[in-house]
Simulated scan of single mutants.
Amino acid sequence: MRVAIFGAGYAGLGVARRLERSLPDDVELIVVDESGEHVVRHLLHRGIRYPDELAHIRLPLGLVLERATIREARVEALDHTAGVATLTDGETLSYDFGVVTLGGDPEFFGLEDVAEYATPLHRPADVDTIRDDFEAVLADGGRVVVGGGGLTGIQTAGELAALARERDASETVAVTLVEQADAVPPGFDDRLQDAVGDALESAGVECHTSTTITGATDDAVTVADGDPIRYDQFVWAGGIRGPAAQDGDRPTVPATLRLGPNAFALGDAADVVDADGTRVPPTAHAAIRQAGVAATNVARVVEHRLAPGGFEPRLERYNDDEMGWLVSVGDDAVARVGPTILSGAPANAVKTTVGAGYLTSIGAVEDAVAHVQDAVAHESARDVTPQ
């Protein structure tokens, strides 16, 4: 019997590491991933200012998986009924159970000109492109427009503004965050939005809320009910859609995360409805926690399939427990821990702890130590007063 996991992000890696321990030895476990590495995406924005840190958040799967067979390939299509995945160059892979954790792709909402002119922050290569383009803006002056005021957009704008300040270019470089909702990040409580708004203002980021981007040219974004906003660099963080292998869809799955008799789906690749009937936002925290539920359920279904008879196994149900939120804003951060809103040094400490804790949890202990050391070094450098 073969269990195939498609994608090795937060959800996929979490499922794979658990199934390595829980599946019978004679069940083959295979992980299919386009890049062959696990990327800690909630720290990806750090590479804009600190490119060396990318090395600590890009982890070869061979270092964090022990038993699973790793197949480096792009998934083009999935047929769970037939148990066949179509991979790069038309190759196929058969499987008995599939776990879809392919993540999401950038959503441009049909704005083809935005897709043409903007760079999304989605993969490590995008970080290199954003940083290289920003170097030209730093040299010549100009404006960067970041489309989308969710967590990714806020963190990207904060890093760009901080880098401009470090290069003494704050007077010649403008960073503008554009969001169609009336506050950033949208959908959060007022206290958190107020704290994030204050942090963005202190960082020097201009926020244009209640502003909907409707298109783009090579030097301006067009907006509803307003004049075009000229730019020298355009970064997009406007949301996600389902992966190409699912034609951009994010199928709805119940709290058991079961997509069908032979498949489970979770993380950004699915629209998860939890045990309370609430649709779960596509976040790293949710994907990490869903992985535990999915792995338990896959193991139970496999065990039942190997030894049929009796009732169908009882499946665990995912319940979203929003333990808190964390967003970086350049050198600052804002965190909600329970009912408490933190900013400044306490929030930065939470940020470092969360990053190191996740790296440790997936077995990347040396990278976790390096992450902490980098954070301490950057904080110390900011505390040094020029003579």
Rank of each mutant, 00 (worst) to 15 (best):
A8V: 14
R17L: 12
G36D: 15
V40D: 00
H45N: 09
G47K: 03
G47M: 08
Y50T: 01
E53L: 09
I57M: 11
I57D: 03
R67K: 14
A68Y: 01
T69I: 13
L78W: 03
G83M: 07
D96P: 02
G110I: 08
G110C: 07
H122C: 12
P124V: 05
V127G: 03
I130K: 05
F134K: 06
R143Y: 07
V145D: 01
V145A: 08
V146A: 00
G153I: 03
V173W: 05
A174Y: 00
V175N: 02
D182H: 12
G187Q: 11
A199G: 10
T217I: 08
V223A: 02
Q233H: 11
G248F: 12
P251W: 07
A255S: 13
R258F: 15
P261D: 14
F264T: 05
A265V: 14
A270Y: 03
T278Q: 10
V280M: 08
V280I: 14
A286E: 04
I288G: 00
A294V: 15
R300W: 10
R317N: 03
L326N: 06
V334A: 05
A335Y: 07
P346S: 01
N348C: 13
T352H: 10
G357C: 08
A368R: 09
A375L: 00
V376Y: 09
Q387G: 09
